[in-house]
Computed example of a mutant assay.
Amino acid sequence: MRYGPAGRLLLTPVDGEAPERVRRLRELGFGDRPDPVFDEFAHRAARATRAPYGMVNFIDENRQFFAGLHTPAGTHSGSDLSTSAAAAAARGTGRVLSRDRGFCPHVIVRRKALVLEDVCDYPRFAGNPVVDEIGVRSYLGAPLIDRAGIALGTICVVDTEPRPWGRAGLETIKSLAGELVERIHRREDGAI
């Protein structure tokens, strides 16, 4: 575990790849606007895992942007996640989330899938602001690693209840990540 200068547990991992990721995201034209293809992938991830929320998330040095988003209400707004949509909107919840919130920054740095059936079982993750502020209790995500070897972002699903994702959930999210990366490559090559 990493601790900061004051001896506090660092909840957000250090991300040395961020500048190169930002350059690559700009090159691809990702990370600053919603995309219907990514919304569809978020929907597929949620449907395949029976999770209420799905996201395709691109991360820069300071923030996360949900280029793809699925919510139960179908509004494509993360504000549905909170019991108080007005309070969530006031916190800036929607398609943008600060880099120090959530679990996708961990997936990016780890460069491998992360399965949290109950985030409260893990001290490092239980203290994340999304647990109390938004109500996230379980998370399943995989990195989107492109042909240049850069972890561009994640595809993930979350629930407000603990979830036994199991091996099937892990294999599903990893498969969707691979499929989405291939689609990104085809788009970059002009094949779609």
Rank of each mutant, 00 (worst) to 15 (best):
A85F: 12
E133R: 12
A85L: 06
A87L: 06
G94K: 06
R101D: 02
C104P: 02
P123M: 09
L114W: 05
A90S: 14
A113P: 11
A148C: 12
Y122I: 03
P129E: 13
L140D: 09
G141H: 14
C156V: 05
V130M: 08
R147L: 12
V158L: 15
T93M: 14
V119W: 03
V119I: 14
S98G: 13
G149I: 03
G153T: 10
P123D: 07
Y139W: 07
A148E: 08
L114T: 02
R101E: 14
N128Q: 13
K112E: 15
L114K: 01
I145R: 02
S79I: 15
G94I: 11
S79D: 15
S79P: 00
V119A: 06
G127M: 08
G78I: 00
R99S: 00
R95G: 12
L114G: 05
G127S: 11
T71I: 12
Y122K: 02
C156K: 05
P143R: 03
A151D: 07
G74M: 04
H76R: 11
G127I: 01
S84I: 01
L144Y: 03
V130D: 04
F103I: 14
G102H: 14
T154A: 07
R111I: 06
R137L: 07
I150Y: 02
L116E: 04
R137Y: 05
G135E: 07
D121W: 06
D100N: 12
V130Y: 04
L144W: 08
F103A: 15
A73Y: 08
G102W: 06
T154G: 07
D121S: 14
V96S: 08
V136T: 14
I108M: 06
G102E: 13
D146Q: 10
L152P: 01
F125S: 10
Y122W: 04
R91L: 15
G102L: 09
C120M: 11
R147K: 05
